[in-house]
């Protein structure tokens, strides 16, 4: 599948209807999701024929992309019932087969090394959730046998690099993208904000 085609499909998915700031619900724009997933498959071969988990899957944009790029098994983990309903709708619209489990990812137990690849656009850990991005990331690393791919603000690259070193995993920046966050919440003063984000790869072999 070509990048443009993938982006086109992902652009048809429904997003958060009533985003919740406490869960830091920001959509992964089709532009970002398509480039992230396309790179993971085409530069690393970590999607096709693999078992893939999507942590904090939201409306399942990354999960859908993983299935479209040929993953053999995909499971999204999500806490919020309302957004799971949207994910379920997207799954039906796209005739996908991916799985959804309703769970608090920070409390997820017993999944060590059960997946090949784990992908995530974690809560960035601002506002009241400081550090939650690192909790998601360490959970992801424990679940993967090959690699974890995660989206983070470029401004946190150095901090995450140090953590990766502590955990004994190699981290690489595989893409630098611009994340256009539209004004969604009351405290957003501008129409939209451009945030620089990295797609980071963590080697779990």
């Amino acid at each position: 599948m070509k990048l443009k085609e993938l982006e086109g499909w992902l652009g048809q998915l429904d997003s958060f209807e009533d985003p919740k700031i406490l869960l830091e619900q920001y959509p992964t724009p089709p532009h970002i999701a398509a480039r992230m997933m396309y790179t993971i498959e085409n530069s690393f071969g970590d999607i096709g024929g693999k078992a893939v988990a999507d942590l904090g899957c939201g409306p399942a944009v990354l999960a859908t992309a993983a299935e479209m790029l040929g993953a053999s098994y995909v499971c999204g983990f999500e806490i919020d019932e309302d957004v799971i309903e949207i994910a379920q709708g997207n799954k039906q619209d796209m005739e996908c087969e991916f799985e959804i489990v309703q769970v608090d990812v920070t409390k997820l137990l017993g999944m060590d090394k059960r997946f090949d690849t784990v992908i995530l656009n974690p809560p960035f850990g601002t506002k009241k959730n400081k550090g939650i991005d690192m909790v998601f990331l360490s959970k992801a690393i424990s679940m993967a046998t090959t690699a974890v791919y995660s989206l983070h603000k470029s401004s946190t690259r150095e901090h995450i690099g140090k953590k990766a070193k502590d955990w004994g995993v190699k981290m690489d920046v595989v893409a630098e993208l611009r994340y256009d966050i539209p004004a969604m919440y009351k405290f957003h003063k501008k129409d939209s904000v451009d945030v620089r984000v990295d797609v980071l790869r963590f080697d779990c072999t």
Binding site: Q88, E99, V101, Q102, V103, D104, K107
Partner: peptide, 14 residues
């Protein structure tokens, strides 16, 4: 329900 397992816990189970 509808194929989705719900593993969420109540406060006293956490």
């Amino acid at each position: 329900v509808q194929g989705i397992p719900n593993l969420l816990l109540t406060k006293d189970e956490v």
